[in-house]
Design a protein around this nucleic acid. Structure first.
Lengths: 210, 210
DNA sequence: GCCTTTTTTGGCATGCCGTGCCATAAATTC
DNA sequence: GAATTTATGGCACGGCATGCCAAAAAAGGC
């Protein structure tokens, strides 16, 4: 094989490239013309591939944009998952947002806001976005389970993972529609603080209410 | 007009009847044969109508089941919305679940559990279920805004409405897959208690933590 | 370099979804 | 009972999504 570690075989690189081209083309077309009036044929043409090849990269039309947000959500969850349970969630949050340079974050922010606005406008895309978040639950659950001191399958951990992910989703959408963007991480902290998700621990007795 | 108040014109009754027949037929077929292998033609035939008429009642195939859960979710939100802000959420919860008789609740519970399990199995149906919850947010937001002491469009109220609705969703799904069902309202109370959604009030200062 | 093997891509056909259009049947109204 | 209104069904059509097969391109062996 001609590929060294981390240089995945030039063909795979080309595949990633194509996947991104599809996503970019779809994002532009959806933003310009709208989702329903854009056919898969249009996206494929704009990305320089045939319709049949499009479906080799995307399971469905509504998945064309997923590469654009799946990675960011995945990264956030990764950081949360690998941080020790003693630290509050907001610390892991800072670590996640601190990796990129300021100017790169600004450029990403503009693109991200536009993307989130498109996602929020088209119901099926928004659902896809939420679904991507739900799929992260399995990866987030173990980390939060240790924080909450409850087993992974318990109602409490399910509630917690859902609450954390939805807090992020709601916050991002709120941020995407603000006139003055501000720093997303600040809003995130405000959200976690309001819902007091940092302090959540399992009740002493799960079933004894009084 | 031949219809008195609350007896909406016999034709409308027939429409509701048809809508329920569609939903029941779809629920049975989806549970038996699966979602993808069931065509809209099948549902229409089982409901005794033509394909074209199906689409006059349902915007899409994935909406065939919505009448079965939209009303229950709507009822819960109604009760929460009309209860005064001083009472904790769990009080309104008890009021909502206390309306039906015990034996009727048992029959409904079995049907509801089966329905939720189908919804959870088929991604597109689950998304539809979540979307129905999201549409309730606008109706829930005013009630929770007065409880939280924050404006309707604020980040805090958005977080709160999302958290409450998703807590219900997660709890119902947890309940649907339990071996021993138990009382749903008890799980609901446990969920609200764990997330401390009863006690949520707007922070004195949005940014000062202590 | 050339040939073979493997993978990727494109074109075609097909089935289902969802909708516009129009004719028929049913109901409401007079 | 006749006219008007409304619900229903049949048909055609475009778009989505997939299976199948052949052409093209890449990878590997000589």
């Amino acid at each position: 094989m001609a590929a060294a570690r981390g240089r995945p075989s030039l063909t795979d690189q080309r595949r990633l490239q194509t996947q991104l081209e599809i996503a970019e083309a779809a994002a532009t077309l959806f933003a310009d013309r709208g989702y329903d009036t854009t056919t898969v044929e249009d996206i494929a043409s704009a990305a320089g591939i045939s319709l049949r090849t499009f479906y080799r990269y995307c399971p469905a039309k509504e998945d064309a944009l997923t590469p654009l947000f799946a990675s960011s959500v995945g990264h956030l969850v990764d950081v949360l998952a690998e941080h020790p349970a003693e630290e509050p969630l907001s610390t892991a949050l800072d670590a996640s947002f601190g990796t990129a340079t300021a100017e790169r974050r600004l450029a990403d922010a503009a693109r991200a806001r536009r993307l989130v606005r498109v996602l929020g406008t088209v119901p099926v895309l928004k659902m896809r976005w939420l679904a991507a978040g739900r799929e992260m639950q399995e990866r987030l659950a173990p980390a939060l389970a240790s924080r909450a001191g409850a087993p992974v399958g318990s109602l409490e951990v399910r509630l917690l993972t859902t609450a954390v992910l939805d807090a992020f989703t709601v916050t991002m959408e709120h941020w995407a529609w603000q006139d003055e963007p501000g720093e997303l991480v600040d809003l995130m902290r405000r959200a976690l603080s309001f819902l007091r998700l940092d302090e959540l621990r399992a009740q002493p007795e799960p079933s004894t209410d009084r």
